[in-house]
């Protein structure tokens, strides 16, 4: 038996981009393999849930978990890996803040099913068939995981030791985090592993004074290539977003969309962003301010909570239970 640490990587409701980012650390992946036995990484290599289940509690030294919790199977895996891992890292925006799939918290399970399987313009479903947790076919019974009403972050599901932001985290930041873990140079548990500054601090665009009379949507304006995008009236989230990416989007003429989550010390990205936006509007007239915001920012939820709705204090649109799993969902989880 090797005396190396044991490492697991897992994906839940995510896109696979975090995996691609891990692979993009290129030859450094060999350094990871020198430091750890990778015992479980479904995307990339060998591993079995059964063996994880058999492991003693805390038998894993480190688990990097990406993806949010959208269904009962993902919740089962989150609970299992929490129990088995000494250190559990919410890896990437989905596990950290819910990311884009968390915008589904503006809708219910029924609304999602209604459109995808029935109302969708290319659907052929006259009998209104929906996916079922259990289906009897002529040969036997087939099972699917239960799709929850609310997408939860990893931290809303189990205790998380560290958070690594980004959609996906840039390979360099992944390597920084692994180095921090290997050398034990870690912030207090519960912290985000990342920079203390904002995307603006690493953006090469020239900043002067921010006085906005009108916000413009990206399709309405060809911005100057040198000047700060926000000063040109484009809603750039760099001002509220944690540094770490190197301000990549503003450098190709696109505004920061906030994938690295809130900057240090801030919990609710949208609240921080709205405060920042309010402070750059060049008006003291409440009616004019209202007009500037409504005309230029027609979708405040999608603009300010693009990556963080599930994690935010709003969490989801108003519904009974406020996103807590219904009794049926709980039964599905415990029944696994």
């Amino acid at each position: 038996m090797s005396d190396k640490g044991k490492l697991a990587l897992y994906w839940a409701a995510s896109c696979g981009g975090c995996e691609i980012a891990v692979l993009a650390i290129n030859e450094k992946i060999l350094d990871v393999a020198n430091a750890f036995d990778i015992v479980f990484w479904p995307c990339v290599m060998d591993g079995k849930v059964r063996d994880i289940e058999k492991m003693p509690d805390k038998g894993l030294d480190l688990c990097l978990f990406n993806g949010g919790i959208r269904n009962s199977e993902q919740e089962y895996m989150a609970r299992l890996l929490r129990k088995k891992a000494k250190v559990l890292v919410a890896f990437g925006s989905c596990a950290h803040e819910g990311c884009i799939p968390g915008l589904a918290n503006m809708n219910s399970r029924d609304e999602i099913f209604q459109f995808v399987y029935k109302d969708c313009p290319s659907a052929d479903n006259p009998k209104g068939v929906l996916p079922e947790v259990e289906t009897k076919v002529s040969e036997g019974t087939l099972h699917l995981p239960f799709f929850y009403d609310t997408l939860k972050t990893l931290g809303q599901t189990v205790d998380v030791d560290y958070y690594l932001p980004g959609c996906p985290p840039e390979p360099e930041r992944i390597w920084d985090a692994i180095t921090a873990i290997l050398t034990g140079k870690l912030p207090p548990p519960g912290s985000v592993i990342g920079a203390e500054t904002t995307v603006c601090d690493e953006c090469p665009r020239k900043r002067e004074e921010k006085k906005i009379k009108e916000f413009k949507r990206t399709w309405q304006v060809i911005p100057d290539t040198e000047k700060c995008l926000l000063e040109q009236g484009i809603v750039c989230c760099g001002i509220a977003t944690r540094a770490g990416c190197g301000a990549l989007c503003p450098q190709v003429g696109s505004p920061c969309i906030g994938c690295y989550g809130p900057n240090a010390g801030v919990e609710d990205f949208g609240a921080r962003m709205m405060t920042a936006i309010a402070s750059v509007i060049d008006s003291n007239d409440p009616e004019e301010i209202d007009r500037i915001i409504q005309e230029g920012i027609p979708d405040p939820v999608g603009t300010f909570y693009r990556f963080s709705l599930a994690h935010s204090s709003l969490r989801r649109s108003n519904r009974a239970g406020n996103g807590k799993p219904a009794a049926k969902e709980e039964a599905e989880v415990s029944g696994r």
């Binding site: 409701a13 959208r70 269904n71 199977e73 799939p101 915008l103 589904a104 918290n105 503006m106 809708n107 609304e111 999602i112 459109f115 995808v116 969708c120 996916p131 699917l144 995981p145 799709f147």
Partner: peptide, 10 residues
């Protein structure tokens, strides 16, 4: 066994 519902939440 997975769905995320992009068509609805967009």
């Amino acid at each position: 066994p997975e769905l995320r519902g992009f068509e609805t939440f967009c």
